[in-house]
C-alpha cells in the first residue's frame, strides 16, 4: 500500500513536468511528417469513417441505436477506445524507449507512463471536440447526463495509469510482452463493445451469459459508460456490480504495478 501511495505522490508532485514533457513527445513523434500533428486527428478520423461505413451503413443499414443514428452512438465509445488502445500500447513501450534518457539523472521514472498518457490525452481532447460537433449534428443534445463524463473520465485515467505501470515494467523485463499486448488489444477491440451494440443483437440476447462475460471487461465498462454519459441512457450508480468489478480490477493492477515498478526501477538500465 505504501508503494502505491509513493508512486501516486510522485505523479502529483511532477504534474507540471509531465505536461511539458508530453508536449515534446508530441513534437518528436510527428517531427518528420509533412502534415505534422494533423495526422493525430486524420488517422482516427479515417478509422471512424471506415467503421461508420462498414457497420453503420452496410451492416446495421442505418438502423438507429438507443434512439440515435449509428454515428452518434459510435463516437463517444469509439474515441475512448482509440485513446485507450494507443495509450496502452504507447505506455508499454514508454519505459523501454526512454529509460536510456533518464537513467543517469534524478528523475521519477514512474512518471514516464503518465507522460504517454498526457501526450495521448491532447489527442483525445481534439477527437472529443470534433465528435461533439458531429454528435450535435446528429441530434444529441447536452443534458445533465453529460456530468457522468467526469466520473468515467476519472475511471479511464486511473485504469490506464495502472495498466501502463504494469505493462511498461513487464515490457522492460520481457520484451515479447509488447507484441502479446498488441494482439490482445486486437481481440479486445471486438469484445469491448467499441463498434458493436451487444444489447441490440438478437443472437447474443438469447445467450445472456455472453453479455455478462463481456461486462466483466474493464474496457467495456468505460466504453459503455461514456456512451451512457453522452447519449443519456443510464446513470453510473445503477450498475453497482460492474462498478465493483471494475474498481477491484483497477486497484489490484495499481497495487501490483507499483510494487513491481518500485522493485525494478533501479534496475531498468540493466535490462536494456
Amino acid at each position: 500500500m505504501r508503494e502505491t501511495w509513493l508512486v501516486l505522490l510522485e505523479q502529483f508532485k511532477n504534474l507540471k513536468v509531465i505536461r511539458r514533457l508530453a508536449k515534446y513527445e508530441e513534437k518528436s513523434t510527428f517531427q518528420a511528417h509533412i502534415l505534422g500533428n494533423v495526422w493525430q486527428i486524420l488517422d482516427p478520423a479515417i478509422n471512424i469513417a471506415i467503421y461508420w461505413f462498414v457497420f453503420g451503413m452496410v451492416l446495421y443499414g442505418n438502423k438507429p441505436m438507443d434512439g440515435y443514428s449509428y454515428i452518434a452512438w459510435l463516437l463517444p465509445g469509439f474515441i475512448a477506445w482509440q485513446f485507450m488502445r494507443s495509450e496502452i500500447l504507447g505506455a508499454s513501450r514508454s519505459m523501454v524507449s526512454r529509460v536510456q534518457m533518464v537513467s543517469k539523472m534524478q528523475f521519477p521514472v514512474s512518471t514516464i507512463p503518465s507522460m504517454t498518457l498526457a501526450s495521448q490525452l491532447i489527442n483525445y481532447w481534439w477527437m472529443l471536440g470534433i465528435s461533439m460537433v458531429i454528435m450535435l449534428m446528429y441530434g444529441v443534445r447536452p443534458s445533465f447526463y453529460w456530468l457522468e463524463f467526469i466520473y468515467f473520465f476519472f475511471c479511464m485515467i486511473v485504469f490506464l495509469y495502472a495498466v501502463g505501470l504494469v505493462t511498461s515494467t513487464i515490457t522492460v523485463v520481457v520484451r515479447d510482452f509488447h507484441t502479446l499486448l498488441n494482439s490482445a488489444m486486437q481481440l479486445m477491440f471486438w469484445v469491448s463493445g467499441a463498434i458493436f451494440n451487444f444489447s441490440a443483437n438478437a443472437i447474443i440476447e438469447k445467450h445472456p451469459m455472453v453479455i455478462h462475460i463481456i461486462q466483466i471487461n474493464p474496457f467495456y465498462y468505460i466504453i459503455a459508460g461514456m456512451r451512457e454519459a453522452f447519449l443519456g441512457t443510464g446513470l453510473f450508480y445503477h450498475d453497482i456490480k460492474s462498478m465493483i468489478i471494475f474498481w477491484s480490477i483497477t486497484l489490484m493492477l495499481l497495487i501490483f504495478g507499483s510494487h513491481i515498478h518500485l522493485k525494478f526501477r533501479s534496475r531498468f538500465v540493466d535490462y536494456i
Binding site: R2, E3, Q215, M252, I255
Partner: peptide, 28 residues
C-alpha cells in the same frame, strides 16, 4: 522497502480485492 516482497497489509488488501472480484463476478 523495494527489495522486500509484498508486505502483509498489502497482501491482505489484494486478497480481499480478489475475493470481492470473484464474488461479484459470480453474482453477475
Amino acid at each position: 522497502l523495494y527489495d522486500k516482497p509484498l508486505s502483509w497489509p498489502t497482501q491482505t488488501v489484494l486478497g480481499f480485492l480478489t475475493l470481492l472480484l470473484i464474488f461479484t463476478i459470480t453474482a453477475t
